[in-house]
């Protein structure tokens, strides 16, 4: 089975390292990691990964701005927002802007991989649809 390609965007090198370790030996392959939103959008345009894991709270260009720019390039991109913030408002804002899903930190490897596996079947947050 061809691995699904993943791009991770987070200002924290620690989180990029942890996510890369989580996805080792899985069906997901990290093809790019970026710490800056602006640079990440350029890189996204070059490599077009299957999944983008995007930190919400970043210095400089925020996660929301980065999300909008990636979706402007390709509205069908599967972008998952990853944040320690899991408030209703934050989740609503991300999903209504077009993120596929929202994952709150901290999370274990098993929960993380199950989450990625279920992305295709995952309905959008019911709070958004209602």
């Amino acid at each position: 089975m061809t691995p699904q390609t993943v791009m991770t965007i987070d200002d924290s090198a620690a989180i990029l390292t942890i996510i890369a370790a989580y996805l080792e030996d899985s069906e997901f392959k990290v093809v790019a990691s970026e710490r800056d939103g602006r640079r990440a959008v350029e890189r996204f345009q070059e490599i077009r990964p299957d999944i983008v894991l995007l930190d919400l709270i970043m210095p400089g260009q925020s996660g929301m701005e980065t999300l909008s720019q990636i979706l402007a390039l390709d509205p069908d991109t599967c972008v998952v927002m990853v944040s320690s913030l899991g408030t209703e408002d934050a989740v609503h804002q991300c999903l209504s802007t077009g993120a596929r899903s929202f994952l709150q930190k901290p999370f274990s490897r098993d929960a993380f991989i199950d989450f990625l596996r279920n992305l295709e079947n995952q309905p959008r947050d019911p709070r958004i649809e209602s």
Partner: peptide, 10 residues
């Protein structure tokens, strides 16, 4: 601190 702050907001 990001985990502490973000989780506190939630």
């Amino acid at each position: 601190i990001n985990l502490i702050g973000g989780n506190a907001c939630t």
